[in-house]
Design a protein around this nucleic acid. Structure first.
Lengths: 335, 335
DNA sequence: GTGAAAGCGCTAACAC
DNA sequence: GTGTTAGCGCTTTCAC
């Protein structure tokens, strides 16, 4: 009933524990074990379906072959798609993923990192919460654990980071709306003081300024993070009924979903002429009538760059280059 | 740099390792440690921020405080929502979740379970792949590990299972379509030989029979699992152009997404009069014009029942009751 | 009441 | 070339 241990295998193979360990870890040649013994041991291992106890390995080596992934919310398609790509690529290299959602809650994020530390997670892929997490992450660096941030950077830490040029994303999108003859363009964003959200607003603002269109504060709506969707919809409805609007940019996909629901409730001519561009794609946008354009982040590329950075750091413990990998967004105009 | 061990704490507190261990694990009173010593030890633990190494604990106790979650695809909202609920509830009880996607691939699923075993995962929440996994799961039971299946059952194993009455779901939905005056109702499903998919087709079939509407094989489309979406869309378009259809049931949400894309491409009058009902809700459905009705599975309830079953089994090792928890779907008619 | 010590399964330095 | 053994950090039995 109890699984075989290396001791059992050693006994069956008439070899010592060390020899078995060397064979299992592919160090037999290097350690000069005879071919005959190697064969015997391998046969026994196979016959009994022996697999080393990874907990014991971890305790001994200090490694766990587990990568910790910390995101804002795993049920957000942006994060779950990235998680899926990371999972697949990590498995190819023999790493497992353990993930959790922070809900942008600082305490929860700190607690998660502590938990991961206790579990001796080998490396961390983190989309950090707004602020305050710096010290905790610095402690990871102090322990020489590979870390890569994505989605949001913490510039003070100077870490490897995989991100996106959000400024250009909304800049181009705003220009596209203006190119379609829209000039009263609303901007619906979330009330989080993080760079990638600020950049999106700034791209919009500067695009307008560059095109000599006045920036109108009444067209900007900042919704509290984690606010109940019904309330968000209400606020967006108010925005659209109180202001003259013929185009709108949503700074996240879930805001766009709320926005589309709001527009749907405001039936009638008002929303016929409104062009909508969302940030981050969503299945709903392509299907929506009229189609919703989107500023798409390259999910697969982000995931790939993040896991690659981790694998690089894992294999070259000494050099931890500080790389900033910034992808461009892709503006997908649907009509 | 290196974290404190129980040994360090014992030294600082002028106590033995045993005493420290007892205090940490709340067994001090029971073991008759003096109040003064308890205080001292607790203070030292706090001062140095000591946390036990969970790997060492696992090796010693054989427990990991980790629950393994195996789903079909974590990027499918059905699974990621359930994953999120499970994560939250598990954390409250001090358990972490490690998850993976099987893609309905038997080998991958087996491998995942092996990996989890080596990691000494304490319990398993599994949405099993179509077939062939029974022996592997039985081996878990043999090791007396708590297991709960969800979404799909493996009746031969007689395990705890959390599921949904799919038959009633499509039965009611079909009746609703007929009630709307639709009689040429297509059924688009996936080519997987699993009960919950069969049941959906059977509910549709028997509803028609019961209402004296002939069952027409030409209105049934079975799409291969994991088929490229473009091809699926093409097949659905063919179905709709070659057959007289005024209502359609999609057996999964991703098929419905493909179907809506297909209908969108077939512009014109043909899709004006088609009523659509999907299985499993999706943000896109509420927003879609015209609205898409849905047969909704109670995600939160499913997650809750699954994790509860695990926690029950975890706390009462002896009795492993074989419970089948079957929820009803909810038909949401949107118009 | 408290502490010494065995042992969970493994790796690797060191003997032989 | 191969085997003995210490020790990773912890829990818990048993002796004092």
């Amino acid at each position: 009933l109890k699984p075989f241990s290396i001791k059992d295998i050693a006994k069956k193979a008439n070899a010592s524990i060390t020899t078995v360990s060397f064979v299992i870890n592919g160090k037999a040649k290097e350690k000069g074990i005879s071919d005959a013994l190697i064969k015997t041991v391998e046969q026994v291992v196979k016959d009994y379906g022996y697999k080393p106890n990874e907990i014991a390995q971890s305790l001994r080596t200090g490694q766990s072959k587990i990568i910790g992934l910390i995101v804002e919310d795993i049920s957000n398609p942006f994060f779950s798609s990235i998680a899926r790509f990371i999972e697949d690529m990590a498995y190819l290299k023999g790493y497992k993923i353990i993930y959790s959602s922070t809900d942008n809650n600082l305490d929860k994020a700190k607690e998660l990192i502590t938990t991961y530390k206790l579990r001796k997670v080998d490396a961390y892929i983190i989309a950090p919460p707004p602020s305050g997490i710096e010290n905790t992450i610095q402690s990871l660096i102090d322990e020489r654990k590979p870390v890569v941030l994505f989605d949001r950077n913490l510039p003070s830490l100077n870490l490897n980071f995989v991100g996106v040029n959000h400024f250009d994303g909304t800049y181009e999108a705003t220009k596209a709306l203006v190119g379609q003859g829209k000039s009263n363009i609303a901007f619906v964003t979330v009330d989080l003081d993080v760079k990638q959200i600020d950049d999106r607003l700034e791209g919009y603002r500067q695009a307008l300024t560059g095109l000599n269109i006045p920036y109108n504060n009444n067209l900007i709506l900042k919704v509290p993070f984690n606010q109940d969707q019904a309330l968000t919809i209400l606020q967006i409805k108010n925005l659209f009924t109180n202001q003259q609007i013929n185009g709108v940019l949503f700074a996240t996909n879930y805001l766009a979903i709320s926005g589309l629901k709001a527009l749907k409730e405001i039936k009638g001519p008002i929303n016929k002429e409104i062009s909508v561009i969302a940030y981050d794609d969503h299945e709903a946008f392509e299907l929506h009538t009229p189609c919703v354009s989107t500023i798409k982040q390259p999910l697969k590329e982000i995931a790939q760059a993040a896991i690659q950075s981790i694998l690089d750091q894992l294999s070259a413990k000494d050099a931890v280059p500080n790389q900033q990998i910034i992808f461009s967004t892709q503006l997908i105009i649907r009509s």
